[in-house]
Amino acid sequence: MDEEYDVIVLGTGLTECILSGIMSVNGKKVLHMDRNPYYGGESSSITPLEELYKRFQLLEGPPESMGRGRDWNVDLIPKFLMANGQLVKMLLYTEVTRYLDFKVVEGSFVYKGGKIYKVPSTETEALASNLMGMFEKRRFRKFLVFVANFDENDPKTFEGVDPQTTSMRDVYRKFDLGQDVIDFTGHALALYRTDDYLDQPCLETVNRIKLYSESLARYGKSPYLYPLYGLGELPQGFARLSAIYGGTYMLNKPVDDIIMENGKVVGVKSEGEVARCKQLICDPSYIPDRVRKAGQVIRIICILSHPIKNTNDANSCQIIIPQNQVNRKSDIYVCMISYAHNVAAQGKYIAIASTTVETTDPEKEVEPALELLEPIDQKFVAISDLYEPIDDGCESQVFCSCSYDATTHFETTCNDIKDIYKRMAGTAFDFENMKRKQNDVFGEAEQ
């Protein structure tokens, strides 16, 4: 370990593993360490099931009705991949897709007046949907046509809207959309967690709705994908990429100290040895004095023996409960997957309800979601602090990732990755940087 590296990475969460992969592909010498004996950090999948019970201090362990412990891979952080989103792009560019198998999530649902409705995925579904009345549908269709044709580089498509100054509230007004449709559009399509976006320039919202539609167009059922064997497969896929390009991995490796000289990182000390480096990437748990708390998320993992009611017996789905429907500031989400994804025993389902904490009784906040899941065989409640770095790391060369937020997709995580890359490399992130180099010394032969 007593060696000189360009970059040392602490923690094998998804953000850290993707950055480690990119740095290795770009010719950097990388050492990647984790104090845990497993990959994934906060974003790991726990197996066998006995391990999950232990982690949540349920000492009696799983009953026999849960089947074989080894058949379970339970995500600690519930997220899906947008089919046309940035993480899929990263997987394709790096060819990490060859280590993973994905399934399309069967449906996306939205909560309205105590019931759940399928988010329409085709024009026919939209016309048949009970989510809105006849005239509302016509106006909504006009709005969707506007979004589909919108091109930020072609003012002819703006229809009198200025993407940089017109607020989204004004765009909704222009198409005369009612409150329910606005809730549905902002939260189930643009996937905002709160209503803060309404008074911001509309460009980002329009682009988010386009991303949803384009992702949906790829597979038809929903815009989301999920990897077989759980999300823990993602960091491992990128760790393989890093290793192929010469990255060194050490799990179960305690970090005793991060060594600084004149305010700059110069190395990491572990078990009496020092590895030197020019730059350091880590998750917040490794540098508690360089991060601040930015809120909390509650996630309740529920094991069920039945599909969720009114989802047409889907073996995977997402449910969004827009905040307006339950008098909150932030949406509540449910991600459900099952034995069909090799993450649970035969006939079992895993539904994870999550939201940003707003009160001193977080469990009560998630109740509307839990009511949709009854009866629940077993619950595991996790309340996590969200951390963000206190500075950009440019001076110390210590670059810290943000905690995983309450969103049900990876777009915010990818933004964090691109942002850290830019601060480390001094140049904007470009997907081309992730391409495997042809015929290089570490390149794998085609399968």
Rank of each mutant, 00 (worst) to 15 (best):
D6M: 02
V7M: 06
T12S: 08
G13S: 06
L14F: 03
E16I: 05
I22L: 01
S24A: 03
G27A: 05
M33K: 09
Y38W: 09
L58Y: 07
P63A: 01
P63F: 11
V74F: 06
L76M: 00
L76T: 09
I77S: 08
F80L: 02
G85E: 06
L87I: 13
T94S: 04
D101G: 11
V104A: 09
S108W: 09
V110D: 04
K112M: 01
I116V: 09
Y117E: 03
V119Y: 03
P120H: 13
T124V: 13
N130S: 12
M132K: 03
R138H: 13
R139G: 12
K142Q: 08
N153W: 05
P155T: 00
G160A: 02
G160E: 11
M168P: 02
D170H: 03
Y172W: 14
R173H: 14
R173Q: 10
K174M: 14
D176A: 14
T185I: 13
A188T: 10
L189V: 14
A190G: 12
T194S: 06
D196S: 15
Y197C: 04
L198V: 14
P201T: 04
L203P: 10
L203Q: 02
V206S: 02
K210G: 07
S222N: 05
L228R: 04
P235L: 03
Q236P: 05
A239Y: 05
L241R: 11
S242K: 06
S242V: 02
A243D: 00
N252V: 01
N252R: 11
G263D: 09
V266E: 10
K269Q: 06
G272M: 08
G272R: 07
G272V: 04
E273G: 11
V274L: 10
K278E: 08
Q279L: 08
I281T: 04
D283V: 02
S285C: 12
S285I: 05
I287D: 11
V291M: 05
V291I: 15
R292A: 02
K293Q: 01
G295R: 08
Q296L: 11
Q296S: 01
Q296K: 00
I300K: 05
H306L: 00
P307H: 00
N312I: 04
S316R: 00
S316C: 12
P322V: 04
N327H: 11
Y333N: 05
M336N: 14
S338H: 08
H341P: 06
K348Q: 06
K348A: 14
K348E: 07
A351T: 07
S354I: 02
V357S: 10
T359G: 13
T359L: 05
T359R: 05
T360E: 14
D361G: 06
E365T: 04
P368Q: 00
L373F: 06
E374S: 13
Q378Y: 14
I383L: 08
S384C: 07
L386S: 10
Y387H: 07
I390M: 09
D392F: 12
C394D: 15
Q397R: 10
S401P: 09
S401N: 03
C402H: 10
C402R: 12
D405N: 08
T408K: 00
T412Y: 01
N415D: 10
I417M: 02
K418D: 05
D419F: 15
A425V: 09
G426Y: 12
F429V: 11
F431T: 04
E432N: 14
E432I: 13
N433P: 11
M434Y: 12
